[in-house]
């Protein structure tokens, strides 16, 4: 191929400039600020800052509230990932089986992904509202379950998990469907001839062959549950009742912008940055090394 060369050096930089500006302005500068604040103690009103070394981190990891937030985050992200992957796979199996993925069905299922997190949160807040929501009414009528996410920690967790998972189902569905359609039909038919019923075929053939897709989606969904669900939690439960749904990201916001403890908040965001970097590296490393079953 012919190499494209530029006369002089200014054009590549000019073309890169807007992107670099955005990166520096919205990412590197705030990240630097967070790093600075994580190692200092500053007044909420500005003015002075005192270098304290790792003290902020020590305070953080010894706080029981922080341990609670970790537990909440683990429960929340595992439940959200499991639910959104499970439903995405189920819908994809149905679509693959019956419809061979008509565009209509696919379009319909991808819609929720285009909804902003806060809107998704509002939607589920209304639906699951303890006083006026249809679900609360139905649960009360059918199971005499006094559904109330404003009071019950469990109900609140269910609410945020559903709202967060719902948005992600569409995304997972599309990937699973693509994965399913890349499995040769004859392989599944072979299993049918060998005596496997539909469930056995899913377990023995389809799931193993989908595992590269599943792995990719698990990492993606965990990252989503960790970092992209702030809006949902903010709109639905506000981290409550108490701190029952305060995940790590939400605690960063609470400590920093409500509690005005910028140093503690910054220390937490540094930890989260490390986590997201770790997950990303993990994903790249393993995704590229995954077994790809050639036919």
């Amino acid at each position: 191929m012919r190499r494209v060369t530029f006369d002089g050096h200014w054009l590549p930089y000019l073309l890169l400039f807007p992107q670099l500006l955005i990166l520096v302005w919205f990412f590197f500068w705030p990240a630097g600020q967070a790093l600075y604040q994580a190692f200092t103690l500053s007044s909420p009103f500005g003015g002075y800052a005192e270098w304290v070394g790792f003290e902020n981190f020590v305070d953080m990891v010894t706080q029981p509230e922080y341990h609670k937030a970790i537990r909440v985050t683990v429960v929340f992200s595992l439940a959200t990932t499991a639910l959104s992957l499970g439903l995405g796979l189920l819908f994809a199996l149905f679509a693959d089986r019956v419809l061979r993925a008509t565009d209509f069905y696919r379009t319909l299922l991808i819609w929720p992904y285009a909804v902003a997190p806060a809107i998704a949160g509002a939607l589920w807040s209304f639906t699951l509202d303890p006083h006026s929501g249809v679900v609360a009414f139905a649960l009360k009528q059918l199971f005499n379950w006094g559904w109330n996410p404003e009071l019950s920690s469990f109900d609140a967790m269910v609410l945020v998990v559903f709202a967060a998972a719902w948005k992600q189902v569409a995304y997972n569905f599309v990937f699973f469907l693509a994965g399913l359609q890349s499995i040769p039909r004859a392989v599944i038919e072979s299993a049918a001839m060998d005596g496997a019923g539909p469930l056995r075929r899913v377990r023995d053939i389809i799931l193993p062959l989908l595992s590269p897709t599943t792995f990719f989606l698990v990492v993606l969904n965990i990252v989503y549950a960790f970092f992209d669900t702030f809006g949902i939690i903010h709109v639905t439960t506000g981290g409550g009742p108490g701190d029952a749904t305060t995940i790590l990201v939400y605690k960063v916001f609470q400590d920093g912008f409500i509690g005005l403890d910028l140093s503690a908040s910054a220390a937490q965001s540094i930890i989260l940055m490390i986590v997201v970097m770790g997950l990303t590296i993990f994903q790249f490393r393993f995704l590229e090394r995954r077994v790809h079953y050639a036919d």
């Binding site: 040769p184 004859a186 392989v187 038919e189 072979s190 299993a191 001839m193 053939i205 193993p208 062959l209 079953y293 050639a294 036919d295």
Partner: peptide, 13 residues
């Protein structure tokens, strides 16, 4: 009944 397919259709995993 057993069947042999054109593309072998072996279980790749």
């Amino acid at each position: 009944v057993a069947m042999v397919f054109q593309n072998y259709a072996l279980y790749p995993h």
